[in-house]
């Protein structure tokens, strides 16, 4: 299973594109934040697909966005 590319996404429907990105993001998010990975992945999928592709290739960017999402989630639930 190689890296997900914009070309691979372009052949899928918008819903399928988010699913493909989510399937790749979820295990990475889970490794950072095991207990809230489903919600955090759901939040991240709101972002542009180009940004999500970048996060898949950049652990630093992903971690930064996960940290931000956790903060937003905690504020929302407070």
């Amino acid at each position: 299973q190689g890296p997900l590319t914009a070309t691979m996404l372009s052949s899928a429907s918008p819903e399928e594109q988010k699913e493909m990105l989510g399937e790749r993001l979820f295990p990475l998010v889970r490794s950072i934040q095991p207990t809230k990975a489903s919600k955090i992945t759901g939040m991240l999928l709101e972002l542009d697909n180009s940004e999500l592709l970048h996060m898949l290739e950049s652990p630093e960017s992903l971690r930064s966005m996960v940290d931000e999402a956790i903060g937003v989630l905690q504020a929302h639930q407070a």
Binding site: E15, E19, E23, L25, F26, K39, T41, G42, L45, E46
Partner: peptide, 22 residues
């Protein structure tokens, strides 16, 4: 409040219906 269900949860292997308007 409808915001209670936010954010939608992504579950691997299931269809993603989180943001149908995007």
């Amino acid at each position: 409040s409808s915001s209670v269900n936010w954010p939608p949860e992504f579950r691997p292997g299931e269809p993603w219906k989180g943001y149908p308007n995007i």
